[in-house]
Design a protein around this nucleic acid. Structure first.
Lengths: 264, 264
DNA sequence: ATGTCTTTGTGAACGCGTGCACAAAGATGG
DNA sequence: CCATCTTTGTGCACGCGTTCACAAAGACAT
């Protein structure tokens, strides 16, 4: 998963732990698939396997919602789909605005899974006057000037920011001032928001860097198990030369270790 | 942040906690901004504010990397940029393939932050023969048949999956079989991979659902603090009618509460 | 009705992550 | 050289999340 919790460090909302809330959509997806196959009931073991989690964790998660299972049988699929949907607030309509209709914003607007679960793209907003009126995913793009009006007249409480990093905070401030209280941020910036506003961050670059860290560790373990600084990539292809040049010495080694960036 | 850890539940890699690794890119970004403004040193307090974290947490995070600060002064910006980059493996070149060049895949290919930090888009791969040869972001799309060849000849160890959900597992299997050991998955599916392969998931739909949960809770608290089932949205606009119809009764209420999905 | 068998729901223990608070370290000025 | 002041690095305690293991509950067969 590509997200870190930003705000709300450990707020246990209505007794449901944050970690559990984050898994509910996962269960819901697995249950929906079972529902489409007309499977009537499912055990915690089966469902856990489908969702990729531990069965004990799943049972504990469900126990926060109530006792919805039947011992000796399992959980009723349709009933559970409804209960989780209701708990997540998906039984109501959530109008969403997307701000910043570049490559990513357009992709989000076209994303099918968006509308599937109660989320409705109410408006697309971009700062470029040339974009105004242009249809994207069947919706005409509107100019940033209209932002406040759109938010208020549509009762939008969820905003998606897909602008460049430089514009994100400003857009965020305007969204919040207009009444938005939940923000999904794709811009690579830390957003500052007042209390009561939730921000979730999706950052491609961070995800890749985390993968690179583990990848490097794997490569280092392969070549030498002494656990020190990695030497070269485990994959002996084109990366080797660059890797060797960049990663040569020991931590806090001689000057040759730290080229041109050593402190005074 | 929009990602959840998938694999690797609590593996402490080389003594660096997973939570710390996830924050290093954040610090690196803030430090890079300082570096561009030619700021020589920064205190843990300042840097923590820029990265949106607690200063004690930041100091503890850095302590896992070593003693890179100077008491009474702070941290040398350039030196820290280098150390974190090296720790994350960003001093070497990481060729990346993107599979699935639809709206999202194209957006990812065009994403600037991709190439900025050692990640290089080595190839774009799509199953549609009509896409083959078409340039996206300056790179010609190649057909899925070439997948194994591309991975092996470029020494690719990181793959990005941006295909529809139905194709994701199959693509994943082929990537892994060809030698990829880190996968960033944008498809809304749980991927099954062998041990030693890292998967990180970016799921827009899940993020929105988590936001909706908190949004619903906020609305429920506004109207009635008795903590029961929410009644209507806190925003009195167009959503009210739909919300009232959908969210009416109490948990485990009479049949009218659960329309057409009640278990036997 | 009774026994058996399956599966849930949860008490308890453990480990990781976070934040406080402070001692140690070094810079800086006199 | 000494005193003071700033800032780091970390010991410690606390809380959340995960996992194990098992008792309770209900289905089902006889």
């Amino acid at each position: 998963m590509a997200t870190g919790r930003t705000h709300r460090p450990a707020t246990r909302s209505r007794g449901i732990p944050e970690a559990t809330v984050a898994r509910l959509p996962l269960y819901l997806r697995a249950l929906t698939a079972l529902s489409e196959r007309s499977v009537p009931t499912v055990s915690s073991e089966e469902l856990a396997a489908a969702a990729g989690v531990n069965s004990a964790k799943l049972r504990k998660d469900f126990s926060y919602l109530g006792s919805y299972g039947t011992r000796g049988v399992g959980y009723d699929v349709e009933y559970l789909v409804y209960q989780i949907s209701r708990e997540l607030g998906l039984t109501q309509d959530w109008p969403v605005v997307i701000v910043g209709i570049g490559n990513l914003g357009a992709a989000l607007a076209n994303y099918g899974g968006f509308a599937s679960r109660g989320f409705r793209v109410a408006a697309l907003i971009d700062a470029d006057p040339a974009m105004a009126g242009k249809p994207v995913a069947g919706i005409a793009v509107q100019h940033t000037d209209e932002l406040e009006h759109i938010i208020e007249s549509n009762g939008v409480s969820i905003g998606v920011i897909a602008t460049p990093a430089g514009a994100a905070q400003q857009v965020c401030d305007r969204l919040v001032a207009a009444g938005v209280t939940s923000i999904l941020n794709f811009a690579p910036t830390v957003l500052t928001v007042p209390d009561g506003v939730d921000v979730r961050k999706v950052d491609l670059s961070i995800e890749l860097q985390i993968l690179a860290f583990h990848e490097q560790r794997k490569a280092g373990e392969e070549t030498g198990p002494e656990g020190g600084a990695p030497t070269t990539s485990g994959r002996p292809a084109a990366v080797a030369a660059a890797a060797e040049a960049a990663v040569a010495g020991e931590r806090k080694g001689p000057d040759g270790d730290v080229p041109a960036v050593m402190p005074a």
